[in-house]
Design a protein around this nucleic acid. Structure first.
Lengths: 206, 206
DNA sequence: AGAAAAAGCGAGTGAATGCTCGCATTATAG
DNA sequence: CTATAATGCGAGCATTCACTCGCTTTTTCT
């Protein structure tokens, strides 16, 4: 039984114990990012918090960036899941209902882990650039697809332009709302903003 | 003539030559930020590019952050100048005209130095947080003031909410447009986006 | 001209940190 | 039970980098 040579220097390979290690590392990274910020997030500290040694860390993640990227991907995936689901549920709803739902969901998504979201948005240098672009592209195309099948309810307008403007606007409102909690936060305020944003977008599309 | 003791260890004091040094340092910082990114921007490198020694650098800037903050402030000031001017010019225009002008200006402002803007938006960790907040607050209050004096043209709506949503939306469209140049860039496209964004915002306010 | 202050210099220091490497421990297979 | 692979360890290496300090050069003032 020709055993493969002991070639297994890096990365993958999960046999139960290691899976837990990987999880602990990603979780620890997220926690430190939130609690201490990107600058103070060192690999040694991540390993320490994860209850794992630096050596083990580097067995699964080739670099510090890889860890941060994993955190970003996890967070993006969480949000994309919600967005995908919502856009499916909404397929047969009229524009008004659908937009209201989307605005609500956008805010909910931003509220999943506001602290992490803030750190990822404000403090992370380059990493995950590709992820973010892919993310945007997918949202854009999902929204565009919805528009396509609801053209009758809409005025004549280029669907890409419409999707671009709507996604930008909704995302920005949700984003700024969550990040400027200081002055905004009551339930009533949230409802008002959902109403008004919906009104703006719907008015724009009709 | 009791000369002050040689106390002048740090910071200010400009006598022509030093002003040039300070300028060169800020300029070099901006250039390196754009060309190499935040990670690779070191004080030694900044001094080198500015044609100045590290020692001199620290005579005027107490830290690396101070330099980056200076770059941010310079850039923000440039944009705020435009925004302030525009909002003054626009005071007596009807909503439609005024919004169109503001959208146009928002895009122009983002186009002043797109690369720098991108780096500041995407790669800078904490710095200038205060600046950015002050910036937002000022824009918000200027727009709100405009709304106040044009209430008659508008439907009944909380002016803070209106300002928040409009500013977020316009800024987001301009920002995303400039940063996703890849697929967007023709003059015609820009005009379309200005038209549509204007339409959305005006429709929302009436 | 001379003195003093301002500006400038840049090798060097100390601390932080990403990552490696040789070895120890645990799981799996025959 | 024993050999082999998989996983885990953590002291320490190498590097980077913000920042200091003692000194020189330039400018200003009288």
């Amino acid at each position: 039984m020709a055993r493969k040579p002991p070639t297994k220097p890096r990365k993958n390979a999960l046999q139960e114990r290691s899976r837990a290690t990987v999880d602990a590392l990603v979780e620890a990274t997220a926690r430190i990012l939130v609690r201490e910020g990107f600058e103070k997030t060192s690999t040694n500290r991540i390993a320490e918090i994860a209850g794992v040694s630096v050596g083990s860390l580097y067995q699964y993640f080739p670099s510090k960036e890889a860890l941060v990227a994993a955190v970003i991907e996890r967070h993006n995936e969480e949000i994309m899941g919600i967005v995908r689901t919502t856009l499916t549920e909404v397929t047969d709803m009229p524009i008004e209902k659908a937009v209201r739902r989307l605005v609500t969901v956008a805010i909910e998504a931003h509220r999943i882990n506001p602290e992490l979201h803030r750190v990822l948005a404000e403090q992370i240098p380059r990493a995950g650039k590709l992820d973010v672009e892919a993310f945007n592209r997918e949202v854009h195309s999902l929204v565009r697809a919805y528009f396509e099948s609801h053209r009758k309810e809409m005025r004549k307008i280029d669907l890409d332009v419409a999707a671009f403007i709507c996604v930008s606007a909704i995302e920005a409102v949700a984003h700024n709302m969550v990040l400027n909690q200081a002055e905004m936060l009551s339930e009533k305020m949230v409802r008002t903003l959902v109403d008004e944003t919906t009104r703006m977008v719907v008015g724009f599309l009709r």
